[in-house]
């Protein structure tokens, strides 16, 4: 295998490292944050910028090594960045719904109360 150009390995390394750092911070946040509504913010770091950087690094790497434009990573990025908000919103709505059901008849709300419209 021919030697990689230095600029490529530095760019790819930077993308992969920063992306992995953001993703890891999001996941660790998922484990450390105290309530569900806070935790819902954590995974989006991995799916927005963290994932974007890693996928971009991969696209760049294969584009240079194979000598032709490789952009199918963009499909994964598009897919992940569209589906994650959808699942998160679904989960959030389910949680709001369940919290309201559980809060009915209780004095002290467990989480900051979502406005009760029921």
């Amino acid at each position: 295998m021919t030697e990689l150009p230095l600029w490529l390995s530095i760019l790819v390394s930077a993308g992969v490292l920063l992306g992995a750092l953001l993703t890891m911070a999001g996941c660790v946040g998922l484990a450390r944050l105290r309530d569900f509504y806070l935790r819902i913010h954590a995974p989006t770091m991995g799916t927005s910028m963290g994932g974007g950087l890693i996928l971009f690094a991969s696209a760049l790497y294969f584009s240079v090594t194979t000598g032709r434009l490789v952009i199918h990573e963009a499909v994964i990025f598009l897919f992940v960045s569209v589906t994650t908000p959808v699942t998160l919103m679904l989960l959030a709505r389910a949680t709001v719904f369940r919290d309201r059901v559980e809060l009915r008849g209780k004095e002290e709300p467990i989480t900051p109360p979502p406005v009760d419209r029921a």
């Binding site: 509504y37 913010h41 954590a42 989006t44 994650t84 908000p85 959808v86 998160l88 919103m89 959030a92």
Partner: peptide
Amino acid sequence: LACLLTATPGSAWLE
């Protein structure tokens, strides 16, 4: 709007 706000780590669209 919902997808953009939720994709931003600092905010989440609930309902």
